[in-house]
Design a protein around this nucleic acid. Structure first.
Length: 662
DNA sequence: TGCGGCGGCGCC
DNA sequence: AAAGGGCGCCGCCGCA
């Protein structure tokens, strides 16, 4: 692979606007670009900044590599940074040769499928000796890349050195990783195509929402300020609000939280709900808590993000999806505009037209922040003349878990799905509680080894309140009726332990397999799932863990960041519930990738514009909307060969805006 | 002023 | 048979 790394400068805020907007801005310039291949190294330097580089010829090995279509070109965050910089800046300003899109491979994707952190520094720290972070590097880049530019020759030479050093680090990192499998490269490209297409946002609505939110936020701040004599000046000051409430209600039980065995106080959503439920709550406290609650409902930042990230020409936000962003499951994650966590409860398209009309006329709104946050989803919409087609798989994880367990008891659950039954209702019957909502919370919270705590946490989100004793009884009954689930959890953990004890030998639990490679990334446990998915747990060990009986399996926790003075990367315990969950979500993520690949690579009406774990959104011209809907249904209801007998079900619908129905 | 830690939010 | 976990982003706050 030819490794590439750009250093650039621009007045555009890269973090805020993203690499694509950054690269397309005419003020963005290349400082230098490093190339590396098999130990050979060369640095392109912008002659405007490095006069001595004027007229310098490109080495033959670089030109040969660039002209050889069989040699992939890799950069760390190629998709989000180096590829757009190459296309929009370097090709124009410095005659860099045009590179076909399919030449790029992003080394971030390679890190992530290897279970490593995405950031270059972090990945290197995690697998290396945890050398301390070099803050001078970051400071140097800041000095030279953000106006006013430092242009001293010493600094510019230091940038070149820094760039070259990064390529050495990247080369070492890639040597330690396994490369992408063909199917992973395919899926990375599919995701890149979806990112390039983007999803359209209602910019006019977003602008109005930001305007209303700012006014409301200021109003809430003024009231808080007055009520508390200046002790609280914004609804976001959670520490000050917490202390204010504690001042009136010492040791308030609703606010008590335990973290790592340490008692703490919180003023989070559920604490506020419990406080407001108390009829005797002092009036002043009630006022403050209500104002905080109102303010926190907003998702103003997301509307601002839409304004920041959308292309002003076609109003589309691009580059929002991160391939294998979740290292432990290889699910997609999101960046910039967080499309994966928009509030579900939202207005219908008709209500949106009504509300937006009022907002454009500056008319007042009821419960402003709540109203605005319910406008978030519908702020995604198709281009004029198009429709959105939305499909989601119903209860896919509740189905995938028993399918992976592959036992007679688990088949019984799958038969409920096959018969078109409602697994939540069925579960409510099983635990002898006549309430579908409770059945749903049970299925969602207990499938991965969770018990009382997991149930109550989930119950809070669904407005279900039960006494602890009742929940304990539900847990016992559910586990007894669904004995296949505990059996599967413990089989997974036994298989993982066996695998670690016997390197290179594949161990099986249900449809899940584990194998341990002692030489790979400090000893890696691989989880092999149906359909060629490989989950990697690097630096796996069996060791004593605080607060736990016996020795447990532990591994690197890629999604955490090590503290500055840490001597080892943070770790996680691979207990049976986590193994079950990772396998299930990893398997479901594969089903999604297969569907996306079909939709993207096969001919047919409708283009993918968004996906959220169990949901796919297409955009299609109105005249083709029905055909696109049928196509989406066909793709989502056709099970890949490696998942035979899995009763997947989706009923896509046609919408004028993004919404909760799907 | 920039950072890192932490609390908080929301979804699957 | 104890234990929800998977994400990303925002804002505050203390520190350097």
């Amino acid at each position: 692979m030819l490794l590439v790394d750009f250093e650039t400068r621009s007045p555009v805020d890269l973090k805020r606007y993203g690499g694509r907007v950054y690269a397309m801005d005419p003020r963005t310039e290349v400082i230098c670009c490093g190339f590396r291949l098999d130990g050979l190294h060369w640095m392109f330097r912008n002659p405007k900044l490095y006069p001595q580089a004027a007229g310098e010829r490109w080495p033959e090995w670089v030109m040969d590599a660039l002209n050889d279509e069989h040699i992939p070109v890799s950069a760390h965050n190629a998709e989000g940074f180096d590829a757009p910089v190459w296309d929009y800046v370097a090709a124009n300003d410095h005659d860099f040769p045009l590179l076909a899109d399919d030449r790029w491979v992003d080394s971030v994707a390679i890190c992530r499928v290897n279970g490593l952190p995405g950031k270059l520094d972090d990945a290197a720290r995690a697998i290396g000796g945890m050398a301390r972070k070099d803050h001078r590097g970051a400071a140097l880049i800041r000095a030279c890349s953000i106006p006013p530019y430092d242009e001293t020759p010493e600094k510019l030479d230091a940038v070149v050195e820094y760039c070259a050093q990064d390529l050495v680090v990247l080369a070492d990192l890639l040597d330690a990783c396994r490369p992408l499998m063909d199917v992973e490269l395919r899926d990375w490209r599919v995701n890149r195509a979806i990112n390039e297409r983007g999803v359209r946002v209602d910019l006019e609505l977003a602008e109005a929402a930001v305007r209303y939110a700012e006014a409301e936020s200021a109003e809430i701040a003024a009231q808080l300020n007055q009520l508390t004599n200046g002790r609280i000046t914004r609804h976001t000051q959670s520490a000050r609000i917490r202390d204010f409430v504690l001042g009136h209600l010492p040791d308030c039980p609703a606010m008590v939280r335990y973290k790592d065995g340490v008692k703490k106080y919180s003023i989070d959503k559920s604490a506020r709900a419990e406080l407001l439920d108390d009829f005797d709550l002092p009036f002043l406290v009630r006022e403050v808590v209500e104002l905080t609650d109102d303010g926190n409902r907003s998702s103003v930042a997301k509307f601002q993000k839409m304004l920041d990230r959308a292309d002003p020409e076609d109003h589309r936000v691009r580059g929002a999806f991160v391939y294998a962003g979740a290292q432990q499951t290889l699910r997609f994650s999101a960046r910039g505009l967080q499309l994966h966590n928009f509030r579900r409860d939202c207005w219908s398209p008709d209500e949106v037209e009504d509300l937006s009309a009022r907002m454009y006329l500056d008319q007042p709104l009821d419960s402003v922040m709540d109203t605005l946050s319910k406008l978030l989803r519908p702020a995604l919409l198709p281009a004029p003349g198009n429709k959105l087609i939305i499909g989601d798989w119903s209860a896919i994880e509740a189905m995938a878990l028993p399918w992976l367990a592959n036992s007679p008891g688990a088949e019984g659950v799958l038969d409920v799905f096959r018969a078109g039954g409602d697994v939540y209702l069925r579960t409510a019957e099983d635990i002898r509680i006549d309430n579908r909502q409770i059945g749903k919370v049970t299925v969602l919270s207990l499938g991965y080894g969770g018990a009382l705590g997991a149930f109550q946490a989930m119950a809070r989100n669904y407005g279900v309140r039960l006494e602890d004793d009742v929940v304990r009884a539900i847990v016992t009954r559910w586990r007894r009726v669904n004995g296949w689930a505990p059996d599967f959890w413990y089989a997974l953990e036994r298989a993982a332990r066996r695998a670690i004890a016997r390197p290179y030998e594949i161990q099986t639990a249900g449809r899940v397999r584990y194998v341990y490679y002692p030489q790979h990334l400090g000893g890696s446990l691989l989880c092999l799932l149906p359909g060629d998915t490989i989950l990697t747990y690097p630096q796996v060990r069996i060791e004593e863990v605080e607060g736990r009986h016996g020795r447990a399996i532990t591994a690197m926790k890629a999604s955490f960041t090590a503290k500055a003075d840490a001597t080892e990367w943070p770790r996680t315990t691979l207990w049976h519930g986590l193994l079950a969950e990772n396998a299930t979500q990893g398997f479901c993520a594969w089903l999604l990738r297969e569907a996306l690949a079909r939709l993207e690579l096969e001919d047919g009406p409708g283009d993918v514009v968004s996906d959220v774990h169990d949901e796919i959104v297409l955009e299609a011209p109105a005249a083709l909307a029905y055909a696109a809907r049928d196509r989406l249904a066909e793709v989502m209801n056709t099970v890949p060969a490696a998942a035979e007998w899995l009763p997947l079900k989706a009923v896509p619908t046609i919408q004028d805006r993004y919404g909760k129905e799907g």
